[in-house]
Design a protein around this nucleic acid. Structure first.
Lengths: 135, 135
DNA sequence: AATATTGTAATAAAATTTGTTACAGTTTTG
DNA sequence: CAAAACTGTAACAAATTTTATTACAATATT
């Protein structure tokens, strides 16, 4: 995972504990201690994924699109992962070498297997469970 | 995983298929298509992990420190991972906020659980198996 | 002694991530 | 309707991380 996963989990945890209140990006940014624009960018992504809803204008803000018990941690992982998860092979190995020619294909297979296992694991827990861990 | 995992897997696959030959960093770099110094750095790391042995001087190079069947993919993962695997929380959230104060602790727990699942999965396969996938 | 090679430090370049500024568009409220 | 409080997003800047390069000392072989 990357920093975006942490930011998204933080946002979603705040929303889960907000009890129907619409939180502003500025308030959320104050808790995470980052710039409100970054929060809005992440929320935009979560909204596209159907996890969050927002409203513009005065008294605007964001809220969960569905109960926290229906949001799995794996949903957040999938929403924030970029590309093939495990750093992907951005090498362009030598095609004249038998290993170089095939390594990316085999690594991609490996990554995918690993990712499936990880998603399964993260699918076990929900945002509701996660947010209840806080005092 | 990161680019270093891919590089290390590439190096180890070449060594596994080298049949006792000592491969030079230049040869390996040619297959991966990166700078030989990077190869030597990665090999240095793998050597510290007990996966590879090297010898200096003319006709020097590197070889596996043990049979490929005794090297698990999870060993490579552990050798190349940097820090808390999933991008770690380098945010410094607001300690005045109940969520901000505890989020890193709970995320770390989550990361660790996920990492255990991943390592278990990667522990299922060995370098030997991986290298046999190549034609 | 000449050659081939590793080991490693120092530095530079490139890529990625994170942060900032700016401002148009949308609601609410007086 | 105008002011205020927001979101949405683009464009740009700064910081960080990753990857590459240069340089050279140390080690073996021939």
């Amino acid at each position: 995972m990357n920093g975006r996963f942490a930011i998204s989990m933080h946002i979603l945890t705040l929303l889960a504990k907000a009890n129907g209140e619409w939180l502003t990006s500025e308030f959320i940014a104050g808790s995470i201690n980052i710039n409100p624009v970054l929060v809005r960018k992440e929320i935009s992504n979560l909204r596209n994924r159907g996890l969050v809803v927002s409203r513009e204008g005065k008294n605007g803000g964001s809220a969960l699109a569905k109960p926290a018990s229906q949001i799995q941690v794996s949903d957040v992982f999938l929403a924030t992962r970029q590309g093939p998860f495990l750093g992907s092979s951005r090498n362009t190995p030598n095609p004249a070498c038998p290993v170089g020619r095939q390594i990316n294909k085999h690594l991609d297979n490996l990554y995918q297997e690993a990712e499936v296992a990880l998603i399964q694991k993260l699918g076990d827990s929900t945002l509701d469970e996660f947010s209840r861990r806080f005092d």
